[in-house]
Design a binder for these strands. Structure first.
Length: 491
RNA sequence: GGCGCAUUCGUCUAGUGGACUAGGACACCUCCCUCUCAAGGAGGAGAUCGGGGGUUCGAAUCCCCCAUGCGCUACCA
């Protein structure tokens, strides 16, 4: 397959979300796997739903995920333009061709008429659909309508009998009875094409070889076959991907916030995953595994491995829920595999954004302590704020550990104070040795002694490993915090 | 209502007629390690493959029916 050309053709109506990203990724993988071209085409023919930020948001998201495009916005290409709004002159000509060949006709019914027609049909428990009243209009009838100032749409003349079928690369043969097929509108009365016309014309003109799209589009595919036949063109090969279900399993993944069975709100926008501190490589891996699998055991795959092994034969046909828990796990795996410098650099912006005055050197030193505790980069904030704030806030009762008295707690603080102030070197190893020695001497449990010291120096019940934390905090800050704890205990 | 697509542990999946007493991962449980939390190690529980009929010496895998879920049914995509 040397001349593989696939495209992702979103409608810019909102932010880049999980469902789009997955379809996009599979197209991209298919192109990369077969050494073909990946094309981005913006289907902005619906002026009512157009969203200004949609395209920039998607391009940003794609760059973040490392998905490049060979032709499309910003990069151009030999088949441009890649915005349908810039190709508008094209579509009426093709609609006219179908009019000329008798495969299409002008329909003068207004939206209101059609709406009423549907209502009536539903009331009579009939299938809603256009009743084709304009299909066989005579020349005179049309002239009369035009004289009234009615502006027509152009409809495809679907066959009334027989059946239309196509071969789906994932599902095999799919066919429908032609009587089920509506006379689709190809050109709206404002001269804009509908999605159905524009897609077919553009896919043909751009020489698209394979169309990989979500499941929910299956019902429109027979119409496309009809259009290809009317134009006398060879259709591309089709593969319909399973949709992503919402975390509850009730319905497909929403394009807005989605609420899980636990009542929690889950992220769906790529920008939200990014802001929460998911790594692009983790999301990439995770997305690739929705509906595709490499084998019976491998879960973690590099981008290169995925490209190398990706194929439609391992794409499942059943819809799947997106597992946020598994994404969290996978993100942790990727975070743990990062080089310290790399991770520190990725954490930094999250700290700054949270308002912490975190210098790069300190962040670099803290990073090894929290690396295996991070699920998301944003978690770094609550793990590290203790290093950058001046006053700790905590309940003094926390200082007193289980099975310990206030007196013993005071003793722990005093002894710590003494040991730590007299240490020649305030490094992690020295601190640990000296303190463990003291624990033994006092006959306490390590968790009791260090528990108290942890609260005193970090203000938290859960914090990074103590000795490394103390070393990074520095002697001065540590002693000051211990003194403050002592004060809190006595007052 | 009509049409279409789907149906393997709670979840994501492996499985393409015998190697399946159905494998892996997440989540869950127990234990170990341990200064907290993690991470890590060892184990455990969890699917009679949606149901019912066939075909076959043999079916999760092929066929039929049913049920359920989802999708489409716009001058939206």
């Amino acid at each position: 397959m040397s001349d593989v050309r696939v495209r992702f053709a979103p409608s810019p109506t909102g932010y880049f979300h999980l469902g789009s990203a997955r379809s996009l990724l599979f197209n991209w993988l298919f192109a990369r796997r077969h050494g073909g071209k990946f094309i981005l085409r913006i289907e902005d023919t619906d002026r009512k739903r157009f969203h200004e930020e949609a395209v920039p948001d998607m391009l940003d998201g794609m760059r973040w995920l490392g998905l490049d495009w060979d032709e499309g916005p910003e990069v151009g290409g030999p088949y441009g333009p890649y915005f349908q709004s810039q190709r508008l002159a094209l579509y009426p000509k093709y609609a006219q061709k179908l009019l000329d060949s008798g495969d299409a006709y002008k329909c003068y019914c207004s939206s209101e008429t059609l709406e009423q027609m549907r209502k009536g049909q539903l009331q009579r428990r009939q299938s809603p659909g256009y009743d084709r009243r304009c299909r066989e209009l005579t020349e005179q009838q049309r002239a009369a309508k035009e004289a009234q100032g009615l502006v027509p749409v152009i409809r495809l003349k679907a066959p009334l009998t027989g059946q239309t079928s196509f071969h789906d690369l994932i599902r095999g043969e799919i066919s429908v009875q032609n009587e089920q097929l509506d006379d689709l509108i190809l050109l709206k009365s404002d001269g804009f094409p509908t999605y159905h016309l524009a897609v077919v014309v553009d896919d043909h003109l751009m020489e698209i070889s394979h169309v990989l799209r979500a499941d929910e589009w299956i019902p429109t595919t027979p119409h496309r076959m009809l259009l290809y036949r009317a134009f006398g063109w060879t259709p591309p090969l089709y593969a319909h991907l399973p949709v992503i279900l919402s975390p509850t399993g009730q319905g497909k993944m929403s394009k807005r916030k989605t609420v899980g069975a636990d009542g929690r709100e889950y992220d769906v926008m790529i920008r939200e995953f990014r802001a929460a501190g998911y790594l692009p490589e983790a999301l990439f891996n995770m997305l690739a595994l929705i509906g595709w699998s490499y084998d019976d055991k491998t879960e973690i795959l590099t981008r290169e491995q995925i490209i190398q092994h990706f194929g439609l034969d391992h794409v499942s046909s059943a819809p799947a829920k997106f597992s946020y828990k598994k994404l969290d796990w996978m993100n942790g795996v990727y975070i743990r595999s990062l080089e310290i410098d790399d991770l520190a650099a990725r954490i930094q912006p999250f700290l700054s954004r949270a308002g912490l005055d975190a210098d790069a050197d300190t962040v670099r030193r803290i990073t090894p302590l929290i690396q295996e505790r991070l699920v998301k980069l944003a978690d770094a904030v609550s793990w590290t704020d203790l290093f950058f704030i001046d006053e700790l806030e905590y309940d003094s009762a926390w200082l007193v550990q289980k099975k310990m008295t206030v007196e013993q707690t005071q003793q722990v603080l005093a002894e710590s104070q003494q040991v730590l102030s007299s240490l020649p070197d305030f490094d992690e190893a020295s601190i640990e040795t000296a303190l463990r020695h003291k624990v033994e001497e006092m006959g306490l449990k390590a968790r009791q002694f260090f528990g108290t010291l942890r609260i005193a120096t970090t203000g938290k019940k859960v914090a990074p490993p103590l000795f490394g934390t103390l070393a990074i905090l520095g002697r001065q800050k540590v002693l000051k915090r211990i003194a403050q704890a002592q004060e809190m205990l006595t007052s």
